[in-house]
Design a protein around this nucleic acid. Structure first.
Lengths: 237, 237, 237, 237
DNA sequence: TATGAATGAGTTTTCATTCAT
DNA sequence: TATGAATGAAAACTCATTCAT
């Protein structure tokens, strides 16, 4: 609506007092988001919880959206840093091992503060309308692509950008989906296994044998009721 | 916010005139959501566009949320029916062919009315807080699981519920991610190829050859700069 | 600031209850303007004094400005009607008599509710920024011009539009100036005399005699102190 | 609002650095008034543009109103000085010539910085509420009256105070009216002619001839349509 | 003197919802 | 059943002013 409003912080706090205020506001916002959700995070409420005046809030954040954005940035910056550090420690591991580490890390990160992650994720689309490109996503994609590049020859996908997009979004959304719809999965090692299988299977070169000779490809049974049971045992149509 | 409010339609319209009113309201809501987004869909505005009074709106929908929910139900019901019909026509096709058809269908469905899909998806989380179980998701998962069951033996995953969860969410989120972040992918055949490869690779049994003998597993190069180029050409660490 | 906001009433009141509300709001606004000035006329305050809710106010007036504008319109409409009626009763009077009547009317109108006139006049410039043409001024100018036209031959000014502009603004501003700076003038008959003389003198044809022969034109004395007294008696330089 | 606040400058700047600060503030204020109007001239904004802190602003100006007032004073002081100088150069000119010079000067002054003049004029009424007497107006009136006094005998008006009031306000408002409503008039020589005619006609002694014998006085036609044309040619009623 | 962080009452405006007609 | 006038809590945001440093 107010397209002209810049989302960047209005003023850089110069005195330490100002920095404290700024931090208090961000912390209060996160806390309210976690406890009562986005709608409860009105600017007046945030200011009250932070123990400052609304005016102070608006000296550092030009709008409510800028405020939530700042909380998001702060949070995602951690995630990004973690991941970058995680990737730095991968040298010498197999792809399978690397993936396992990273996926576990993503899951752990989200599970550590599930409510905040959820609330922020829900607000993401709104934010995107304001900020054309999402620098976090861009960096994430770059990270994945950078990891893939050295393996370009051994990996099935030709379009590495698309592959990065698919891998990143797969891991991200399945983590989020579990968080939201199957919280019990987050703790199960088998869920990590499955995510690894998903990504590895995606990267693996096409299997010639399977298609040419070997087993016949899976076929959908003719009907879903009676025939279903037969085909299950015989595997042919 | 008002948790006590029931979300079910207040009254079932019995007369055809009432049904027409009800439809007009739902249509107006969808139209506004598409054109101006969620925030523009105030009940007064909806009523005005639908050509009825606010009072009438509240006779059929107990709250704004119930209204948006109804729009969502209507929309998802179509998707579900489409998919069920699609699956009914699959008998005799290979898994690969079946997947391709279904993924294409999901993509096409979303691409047909991207704005509405997007807006509704953004509101989903809010709705979920009100409705503990999402019957649409339940039915979708059941559909996928039902398809997998006959193949349980030939497919790698053991936990078919988890597999259904993963497959459904993978396709759903990657479609949505493309819609939101890479609209150009929606029209590319290669994107469908990749989604198919992703799901197929996930379902395929582990490849013995790859692990035992054959090629050595991919390894992350020791460093990402110099060593990267070497390992790329030799493939060994 | 919000240029898109229309200033026309949002909704025409259809029920008599609505009309009453609408009137109450306008009356309350005028009352507050008179008693406490523009800044006190906050929408909440107006609503409170009118005995309605803010919401009702905004159902009939799209913004605070639209509200003040409506008060202004209502007020000016009276003035315009009065003047039109006054002019209808002028047939057969001399210009001098006509002018006297009209000027007295304008003065009386303003003196009847000086505070309201003053406050509204002060807000006029703000309003003008929103409404490019001021229909009241247009009609006023037309009225004056229409009166002048039949006399075009006997009157000195050639450009009747400019003449109308000058006459209208002269009477309007001198009335307002008196209201603001010399309220005692409003009741003095001599002030009316002077305004008449001003306008009549303006309309009269140039006086040949004075220029050709007769008295020499007034001259500014050489110095403002000593010489002043001499030139006053002799009139020559 | 806060009637207790004195409007006089808080402190007289004694050091030249302080004077510079003070000037910077006034200049910034004028600049903002011109560019973005009164509402944009918040004290914080002014301070920022002036390159000083709000605190400093409040050291020289006790309130926002005092600040705007100071800008106004500065501006009007120029106008007054100009006019005084202009009048000092009038000795020996005819009244007609003198008037012409002065009116042209007033017009030129306003046209030189129309926006600032306009904004300040709009704020004048607010200021007046704080300052009972407007010393600028007092001096202006005195100036006019002083000019008229030596001519008291040859001029029609008996009450020279009232005459000064009328002349000053006439010229001032017609200039302002043109600025606001007919900017094209500002450049037209004919507008100056008309203003001169207005004031001269006002000052001229009543014309005996016209009243006693000569032409009959102008009369308003009986009706404004048909009869109008006849009376126009015959001149009798 | 100068700074600029902090204040907080107060402003305009919206919108889900109710209820008399 | 339908209408639409009325409600009013609450939201985002501003800005003149103060005061500790």
């Amino acid at each position: 609506m107010k397209s002209g409003t810049p989302l960047a912080p209005r003023r850089k706090p110069r005195q330490s007092r100002a920095q404290a205020t700024c931090d208090a506001i961000l912390t209060a916002t996160a806390q309210i988001l976690v406890k009562d959700g986005y709608d409860a995070a009105s600017t007046n409420n945030v200011a009250r919880v932070a123990g400052v005046s609304v005016g102070s809030l608006y000296q550092y954040f030009s709008s409510k959206e800028a405020l939530v954005m700042a909380v998001m940035e702060r949070h995602r910056a951690e995630g990004l840093t973690d991941l970058e550090e995680g990737m730095a420690r991968l040298s010498g591991t197999t792809l399978r091992e690397a993936l396992r580490l990273l996926i576990r890390q993503v899951l752990a990160k989200k599970a550590a503060n599930p409510r905040l992650h959820q609330v922020l994720m829900e607000q993401l689309p709104r934010m995107r309308q304001l900020q054309q490109v999402d620098p976090y996503a861009v960096r994430m994609l770059r990270l994945v692509r950078t990891y893939l590049e050295p393996h370009a020859a051994e990996v099935r996908p030709r379009d590495l950008d698309m592959a990065a997009f698919i891998i990143f979004n797969t891991v991200e959304s399945l983590t989020h989906a579990a968080l939201t719809g199957r919280p019990e999965y987050l703790a199960r090692e088998s869920y990590v296994d499955e995510l690894c299988a998903l990504v590895l299977g995606y990267l693996q070169p096409e299997r010639e044998a399977v298609r040419r000779g070997g087993r016949p490809p899976l076929r959908t049974p003719r009907t879903r009721t009676v025939a279903a049971r037969k085909s299950r045992s015989t595997g042919k149509r």
